[in-house]
Nucleic acid binder design. Structure first.
Length: 727
DNA sequence: ATGGACAATGTTTTT
DNA sequence: CATTGTCCAT
């Protein structure tokens, strides 16, 4: 069978590479996913490797599913036994199998970020640490970093008082997780890595099983991931990794692109294969991308080329503020669609932070155009979803106190702080978990436990315990969906959530959506369902052939491509983000992030920056992104940033777009004394004619942003500049 | 015990 | 401004 047809010679070389360690360095759009897929098919179909002996690690669950399907299509046989998925999913699966060597049981739950933060908070409270001084998020961040670096609580290095605090919290937090029979995201990697590190027989078993290991997006692995890969590949040493250091954008999550260098050191005789040709973008887009990324020092220079032709120039567009930005983007999309030059599904709008999506959403809504938002207010983060999931989680793992806490009063059943405390005290006294105590009380209403409570408390607690016990009893012969329906019915959830308001209605709709998802697990049971829910990523929700524009963060855009891409908010402070300014390493990562965004575009790219941006409710002047200065002018259409003498540096062709929609109602009171208003045309003695973009009162003077036809953007002080208004 | 009203406080990116 | 936490009235 032919596994390399339609591939270029580099790609063919990559697919048919000899066994042993292989490092494929692949630029954006060079077909690396395809190479990885064909490699898997080649190993199974041509080299006779059993799929049972093969592991493929992908970046998203979606990528894993796609790869599985494509492999099946290529070799026309079942891939049962094939280990494929994200690091986290694969680790979870293996850990459940190996719990005899681990301090938790196989029905462990995976705590999501909310759960993790609440656990940190209880740790802080329990240890009498001030939450104001030590922010839960930040303490959690430190702990997470430690875990990614395989540092255990007792090894946490102390160089400051804060470190000491973190260490104590880390220790306590880890204890709480185990009490709950729970793992956080980092634990999945940490426990897996340390199991392989410490238990020789387990390591050998898996290392022997996995004859071939393939890893996508290798530049985004952290030390924990690297270590477990190393152990898994320790027997056969057939490890095949694909990556691009220029697309490393998860440093803050512990990812270390230097793993690429470490790889060549740890696996002597690594074959290095470069995939250079780009099949996605036009040459102009690639040139723009290179002009941005080439400013990063210490890179192995990489050429990006395509035979797709030059293509049209990249549009650089300036807008007055972030609201105008959203309008500009939506208008442009609408007009391209109206003129039949593009389909709605061709577009993606990308931004640095999730917060930026709001104005865009409003603009889409305002224009009555449909769109698809990736991430942000995640489906699984919604209250009603978390409620039901918590019920299921508790039934699956009654030790999960966090879930218990959440649902014991949802809906309210007369169990408040006092009763709850009594329950916990009693539980602690007899050395059993609150959840199990409840269940016991439910099963045995006359038990001695009841005497430990007031009559009322005993009644409400055992009636709730009765519910739990009933659900647990039906677990064995019911599907996840069956369980869900029963719970919803038993607790009368619909009237509770669907309160007649629009919001209540939409909450109920969400529950119906969750039912649909549960239906896919009819034959697989509750555990896989819960696990899937815990480990889905935003990117997994992106449908392939969307019929509407997609809104997503630059991070979420990795690995995707769109015919027409807008990158919004190209301002200093947003991209690069202000929190990256001091750290050169982080600035480099911001640059890579822009690089990733640019290289998502196949045909047309719009770069948009604005002159003002609302930070805290109020609009503030901001600078264009410093990265824009690195793009050669001849690749750009639209505004020019540098004040050049020549006149093409001109106002974009639709000045009316710049006019501030004369604000209905709530503008800051400053307008009272502003002489210059956005949209006014003015002249200046040296800079000639221009248009007012913004004006701000500063003490008694007025600072005016003017875009001059000849001179470009200037900030002028009204009293000194001698601006004349053209009627 | 519960839920509503106000105040304080905080903005990267995510498995 | 938008979320989250705390206080207070029911």
């Amino acid at each position: 069978m032919d596994f390399v047809s339609g591939l270029n010679s580099q790609q063919q070389q990559a697919v048919k590479a000899d066994f042993g360690p292989v490092l494929v360095m692949a630029g954006p759009g060079s077909g690396k996913t395809r190479v990885l897929t064909q490699r898997v098919a080649y190993l199974i179909g041509a080299m006779g490797v059993s799929s049972y002996n093969l592991m493929a690690v992908t970046f998203t669950n979606k990528a894993a599913n796609e790869m599985k399907e494509r492999v099946i299509r290529l070799i026309g046989e079942d891939t049962r036994g094939l280990t494929i998925g994200t690091f986290h999913a694969i680790c979870a699966r293996i850990l459940r199998r190996e719990t005899e060597h681990l301090p938790f049981t196989s029905n462990f739950v995976i705590f999501d970020s909310d759960d993790q933060i609440s656990l940190i908070k209880s740790s802080l409270r329990e240890l009498n640490i001030d939450e104001k001084r030590y922010r839960p998020q930040s303490v959690h961040g430190s702990i997470s970093n430690a875990k990614n670096e395989l540092i255990m609580p007792d090894e946490y290095p102390i160089n400051s008082y804060r470190d000491e605090v973190v260490r104590r919290v880390y220790h306590y937090y880890q204890g709480l997780l185990l009490n709950n029979n729970a793992l956080d995201f980092d634990d999945l990697l940490l426990w897996m890595a340390s199991l392989l590190e410490e238990n020789l027989s387990v390591r050998e078993r898996y290392a022997r099983r996995y004859e071939h290991i393939l890893v996508d997006e290798f530049q985004d692995t952290n030390l924990a991931q690297y270590t477990l890969l190393k152990h898994l590949a320790s027997f056969h040493k057939n490890i095949y990794v694909v990556g691009d250091t220029d697309q490393s954008i998860y440093r803050w999550r512990g990812a270390d692109y230097r793993n690429v260098l470490r790889f060549e050191r740890d696996f002597p005789g690594t074959q290095l294969i470069l995939l250079e040709q780009n099949y996605r973008s036009t040459q102009v887009i690639l040139d723009v991308a290179m002009s941005v990324i080439n400013r990063n020092p210490q890179r192995t220079p990489k050429r990006l080329f395509t035979d797709r032709g030059k293509g049209q120039k990249v549009n650089l567009h300036v807008v007055l503020d972030d609201r105008t930005e959203a309008e500009y983007i939506i208008n442009t999309i609408a007009s391209l669609v109206a003129r039949g030059q593009a389909q709605p599904g061709d577009f993606a709008v990308m931004y640095r932070t999730n917060a930026q999506s709001r104005l865009l959403e409003e603009a889409f809504l305002g224009a009555g155009l449909p769109y698809k938002l990736v991430g942000a207010q995640r489906f699984y983060g919604r209250r009603e979803i978390k409620d039901i999931i918590s019920y299921l989680r508790l039934i699956h793992n009654p030790v999960d106190e966090l879930s218990l806490l959440r649902i014991i009063s949802t809906p309210a059943r007369g169990i408040g702080d006092k009763t709850l405390n009594a329950l916990r005290t009693r539980a602690q006294k007899i050395g059993v978990e609150p959840g199990n105590l409840l269940i016991e009380m439910g099963r045995n209403p006359e038990s001695a436990h009841n005497k430990a409570f007031t009559k009322r408390a005993a009644a409400v607690l055992s009636s709730f315990g009765r519910l739990l016990a009933n659900w647990i009893d039906m677990l064995e012969n019911h599907t996840p969906l069956g369980m869900m329906d029963r719970i919803i019915d038993d607790i009368n959830y619909q009237p509770y959530i669907d309160d007649g308001t629009d919001e209540g209605h939409s909450r109920w709709e969400n529950i119906m959506e969750l039912r649909r998802l549960a239906a896919d697990f009819q034959d697989r049971g509750l555990e896989p369902f819960l696990e899937q829910i815990a480990l889905v990523s935003d990117q997994d929700t992106i449908e392939a052939g969307a019929k509407v524009p997609t809104l997503l963060t630059l991070h979420a855009a990795k690995g995707l491509e769109f015919p027409i891409v807008f990158i919004a908010g190209l301002n200093d402070g947003v991209l690069p983000h202000s929190r990256s300014f001091e750290d050169p390493e982080e600035m480099m990562e911001e640059r890579r992030l822009l690089y990733v965004g640019i290289t998502r575009a196949k045909d047309i790219l719009y770069l948009v920056f604005s002159l003002n941006r609302s930070a805290f409710g109020y609009s503030e002047p901001v600078d264009p992104s410093r990265f824009l200065r690195d793009i050669p002018e001849d690749l750009l259409d639209g505004v020019l940033l540098k004040k050049k003498r020549d006149h093409q540096a001109s106002i974009p062709s639709h000045p009316e777009r710049w006019r501030v929609p004369q604000s209905e109602g709530s503008t800051p009171p400053k307008t009272k004394d502003n002489r210059y208003k956005p949209g006014m045309r003015v002249t200046h003695s040296t800079w000639g004619e221009g248009m007012v973009l913004n004006s701000k009162l500063d003490d008694s003077d007025e600072i005016v942003d003017v875009f001059f036809k000849e001179a470009g953007l200037k900030k002028v002080v009204a009293s000194l500049a001698g601006l004349e208004i053209i009627p």
